[in-house]
């Protein structure tokens, strides 16, 4: 059995690598289902990461830290909403600007906190259960946010496909004109969806600075926001597949780290590229089957809604 001891740490690190992607991905999924494309995920994650980190070091209260990160993310998203939904700015350009803004803002906010240590998020320990070899630490030894990420995916799935509110959200993304003429507030619904997306990105960012590498460094998301965006296309806008996709990308990230550590004879830069290369490859493969994408993709995505007569 000793030969397999490395499996448990690999899976444990895989979970921590995947969790921020699950949060950011599921948040953006709701945003896109309402017909809005917010490319500012990376920026919202960074602001969430720094806000969560600062709150944690100042107050020592991790619950508060996660809440603050969610709030910061949704404030960023609200800003995006004002620009694109109320002022009808182009969503792609605004999203890119939001990412650049988030990079700068988070660096500014976190200046004093760079390199400061913080205790990682507490992990669950249930005597007896967590001690079960192999599966014990994997299933019963995670921190709260990991369990929350699974709960959020289940809740979003239930919301989208089992509730009237979810039906309305999908309807707004499918045809905003029809939704408007039936009498739904397209703009209002989109604000809520965008802000939920921001809050989830914020939590995803906070997971990085509080659990994955418990510290703050500039630009510490390192492109995870973009992977989260790609994930949604990979998942063809289905919540369950976002979860699976996040774990796949998380797994590749971790495997390359372990491969480097094992001294594989490949330049480390090539290995670091793997998650991103995988992203591109998967997108190309998925895009081949356009009909599958269109079936679940919100038809109005990225289109500006003019509530004209």
């Amino acid at each position: 059995m000793a030969g397999f001891d490395w499996i448990v740490p690999v899976i444990l690190t895989m979970i921590t690598a995947a969790t921020p992607l699950v949060f950011a991905g599921i948040g953006e999924l709701i945003t896109e289902k309402s017909g809005v494309l917010n490319l500012g995920v990376e920026g919202m994650m960074l602001v969430g990461a720094v806000t969560g980190f600062i709150t944690a070091t100042v107050t020592g209260n991790y619950f508060l830290a996660v809440l603050a990160a969610a709030f910061a993310g949704s404030v960023m998203a609200f800003l995006f909403g004002v620009l694109t939904l109320s002022l009808m700015a182009n969503q792609v350009a605004t999203g890119l600007a939001l990412t650049l803004f988030g990079v700068g803002l988070s660096a500014l906010m976190g200046q004093e906190f760079v390199g400061m240590p913080v205790d990682p998020l507490d992990k669950l320990y249930i005597s007896g259960l967590t001690d079960i070899p192999y599966i014990g630490p994997i299933i019963f030894g995670q921190d709260g946010l990991v369990y929350l990420s699974f709960a959020v995916v289940a809740a979003v799935s239930w919301f989208l496909y089992k509730t009237k509110a979810g039906l309305i959200l999908r309807a707004v993304g499918d045809s905003h004109d029809a939704a408007h003429s039936i009498g739904y507030s397209v703009i209002g619904i989109r604000y809520l969806a965008v802000m939920f997306g921001g809050a989830m990105s914020g939590i995803g960012g906070a997971y990085l600075s509080l659990a994955y590498t418990p510290m703050w460094a500039e630009n510490m998301t390192a492109g995870r926001g973009w992977i989260a965006l790609a994930l949604i296309v990979f998942a063809t806008w289905k919540p369950g597949l976002v979860l699976i996709g996040a774990y796949m990308f998380g797994g590749i990230t971790i495997l390359q780290l372990h491969a480097q550590a094992a001294g594989l004879d490949v330049p480390s830069q090539v290995l670091s590229m793997l998650p991103y290369v995988a992203t591109v490859l998967v997108l190309v493969l998925i895009s081949k089957d356009q009909s599958r994408i269109r079936k679940h993709a919100p038809a109005c995505i990225g289109k500006i809604f003019h509530p004209a007569a």
Binding site: K164, L167, I168, R170, A171, D174, S175, D177, A178, A179, S181, I182, Y184, K295, H296, A299
Partner: peptide, 19 residues
Amino acid sequence: FQHFSLFEAMTVTENIALG
């Protein structure tokens, strides 16, 4: 409506529920 206020990617029941 003249130009239908329907959601193409949804079922008949879902469309009716929305209205």
